[in-house]
Nucleic acid binder design. Structure first.
Lengths: 217, 217
DNA sequence: TGTAAAATACCTACTTATAGGTAGTAAAAT
DNA sequence: ATTTTACTACCTATAAGTAGGTATTTTACA
């Protein structure tokens, strides 16, 4: 049974991690890294010409991130397994990755043995989530039960306006930019403040930063 | 000359990166990874018993980070070279790492070849900084020249008020809290905006976060 | 001690934001 | 087919912030 090694596609935007993992995995006789990609787009292109059993991908990448990549793979190649492997135990991503139907989620601080174990488990139609992920999920659940007021209740337009607010646009400027009335912008702001339950502009910015609605501050 | 391979100590808190790099570097005949450490403390302990030529370390780690580790190594073992290898091209760290007298600074998105080149260069008493780092430094320089209007020009009271603003206090509340008139608070706000050259409240918060006047958002 | 910077305070005027209401339309969900 | 949700828009009113001015007191320091 070990004469057909598991064929792996590695996806990561860090060259060293890519080649490092390759060297690591190729030490295993039943594993074979058949291709490397620096981002999701490149990965999807490689899948057209390479038969692989499992894709191991990072989350944060240029062009197309690991979540979108996972969604695409699962749509186009349902048989191919996806293992997400990331440095960041970001809360925000965990649920998204689960929703994208990834078969596994590991943090890069796992050991070589656990990675191999996870790969083998997944190619045998299992799933594998590291302990940290599980505990993050538990915390998420608790928070959602207590807070209950989170981002999914904000509409697209509201998120858009929050972004503009955080980019130092005033209500008038937002109105101009979005070709809507200032009154409408005011309504949105009103609803945003009400939904998020914050006190004022400053509170809104804190909320936006804490919930990853805006970045780069 | 190639009969004495370069002895390497790898330091990273991510097990996979550690073993991945090890596998990668051991492919080179003139390089030899002699020890692995998960953090700075472990690394220093290993240096007591292992003769190494160069330490390759990450920055963000528990217990003791890469910057403090570099300082310690350079104090206790001036002959040992240090190459900092990080995923993050964080502005903040660049200058600190340079001040810690690291012999090189690479981002993990460099290729295998460049890493090996850097190692060889450094053990031959050279230094090696990746292109991104150099450009970050250039940007830093420019910013310092152009901005020039930074925190030292803000008075204690002004900094105090910025902090309160960022804690969602309104001018009226700040006035109450500091036992001064609202008019005075307004003057301070006015001066703060003028000194920092920002457009409005949101701009002020960005400024405060970027300059470390407030934390924890 | 004299001077400069910082902090205090008040004035006017204007702009922006918050908070309540009502209400029409289009799309999505039940 | 009806209800809900999102988006749109306007009205009123108050609160908060921005921007200019002047002026007194306190503090720091040369």
């Amino acid at each position: 049974m070990e004469y057909t090694p598991t064929k792996i596609l590695l996806v990561d935007d860090h060259e060293l991690i890519l080649t490092g993992l390759q060297a690591l995995l190729n030490q295993e006789p039943n594993l074979q890294v058949v291709a490397l990609a620096n981002n999701g787009v490149a990965a999807l292109n490689l899948l057209k010409t390479h038969a692989v059993d499992i894709v191991i991908t990072d989350v944060k990448m240029p062009e197309m991130n690991g979540i979108v990549l996972t969604q695409n793979i699962k749509q186009q190649y349902p048989a191919i397994k996806v293992l997400v492997l990331t440095l960041y135990n970001d809360r925000e991503y965990v649920t998204e990755i689960l929703n994208a139907d990834a078969d596994g989620y590991l943090l890069k601080n796992v050991g070589q043995q656990e990675l191999i174990k996870a790969i083998n488990h997944i190619v045998n139609n299992g799933t594998y989530y590291s302990q940290e992920i599980v505990s993050i999920l538990k915390t998420e659940m608790k928070e959602k039960q207590t807070q209950h007021t989170t981002l999914q209740e904000l509409s697209k337009r509201e998120l858009e306006i929050i972004n503009l607010i955080c980019q130092e646009y005033s209500s008038n400027e937002i109105a101009e930019k979005l070709f809507i009335s200032k009154a409408t912008v005011d309504v949105h702001r009103k609803n945003i403040l009400q939904k998020t339950g914050v006190k004022n502009l400053v509170g809104l910015i804190r909320f936006a930063l804490q919930n990853g609605i805006v970045q780069g501050f």
